[in-house]
């Protein structure tokens, strides 16, 4: 590991200033669960690490103007067990409870997970299905970005070098939301081979609005507009579900790796989209 200096700002503004001052040489560190292995492997070698752990505002989970605001430094454990998250964004709490192992959940953070943007990460699909927004702090103040636009490429995000992810905002969900997150992996500590989150607004037996989000099956997590179009305005019966699962599969752009081949992943998209929809709708 290269040498670095460890700085510990106590406010978000101070953290942003430090990043700007050492632009190109500094990097934020949250729980370190992804970054420390990367430093050790010399994949990155910043001269300054900006530790975000002493900024209380970034660790808060709170209700703000009808939406749920989760600080980037909230740990996976805190998000998974928060009463507020369970009540308002239960599929996110479920997904966070499936991240890695207890030790990873104890230190790893929601913000670190999103900024790392690793293929197969669990929190992104539920957040996309719930229509979340990223609140990004930079030298010029805060900017908001739909989370869908936050993930720009393999291990890449929309953050500039002098910006940090401050919060994730989740809007109030329609009453009677039917939602589910299902994760497919072989060992408990693995990222998902396929992760599917669905959120359906059901009114009088008809799906008024549908969001279907996939992880693990493309360079970035994404919403399947095809599956959503099949479901929207329709009665979600077996046939519709089957069509939606096929549409999701057609949109997947998976890669092959040690865990699964691209072909296998693509097939599993249909299987797990079907399961997520049935689970959300109480059809087994």
């Amino acid at each position: 590991m290269e040498d670095f200096e460890y700085l510990k700002p106590t406010t978000t503004a101070e953290a942003v200033n430090m990043l700007a001052q050492h632009s190109g040489e500094a990097r934020a560190i949250a729980g370190g669960q992804s970054l420390i292995p990367m430093l050790r492997a010399r994949l990155v070698g910043p001269a300054y690490l900006i530790g975000l752990e002493a900024i209380p505002d970034l660790a808060r989970i709170q209700a703000v103007d009808g939406s749920l605001r989760i600080g980037a430094m909230a740990t996976h454990l805190e998000v998974a067990t928060s009463a507020l998250v369970r009540q308002r964004a239960s599929i996110l709490a479920e997904a966070e409870g499936l991240v890695g192992s207890p030790a990873v959940r104890n230190l790893g953070t929601l913000g670190g997970n999103l900024c790392h943007n690793e293929v197969g990460a669990d929190p992104p699909p539920p957040l996309l299905a719930l229509g979340a927004t990223a609140v990004i702090a930079g030298p010029g103040g805060d900017r908001k970005l739909p989370l869908e636009q936050f993930f720009t490429g393999f291990l890449e995000t929309a953050l500039a070098e002098d910006e940090i992810l401050a919060y994730v905002d989740i809007p109030a969900q329609p009453p009677g939301l039917a939602s589910a997150y299902v994760k497919y992996r072989l060992r408990a500590v693995d990222r998902s081979i396929v992760g599917v989150a669905v959120a359906l607004a059901i009114e009088g037996g008809v799906c008024r609005e549908a969001k279907v989000a996939l992880g693990g099956v493309g360079p970035v997590p994404f919403r399947s507009r095809g599956a959503e179009a099949v479901l929207s305005g329709n009665h979600p019966d077996e046939r519709t579900i089957e069509q939606a699962a096929g549409a999701a599969m057609a949109e997947a752009r998976p890669m092959s790796d040690a865990h699964a081949s691209a072909d296998y992943r693509r097939k599993m998209v249909a299987v797990f989209t079907r399961r997520a929809l049935k689970h959300a709708l109480g059809m087994g």
Partner: peptide, 27 residues
């Protein structure tokens, strides 16, 4: 493993299990 996977380095930090291979001493 030094990669957060095996748990051989587990210690408790404020009562919670962590991988000491993935925690800086300054932290």
């Amino acid at each position: 493993c030094e990669d957060g996977f095996c748990g051989a380095c587990t210690v408790l930090l404020d009562g919670k299990a962590v991988h000491s291979c993935s925690v800086l001493a300054v932290r």
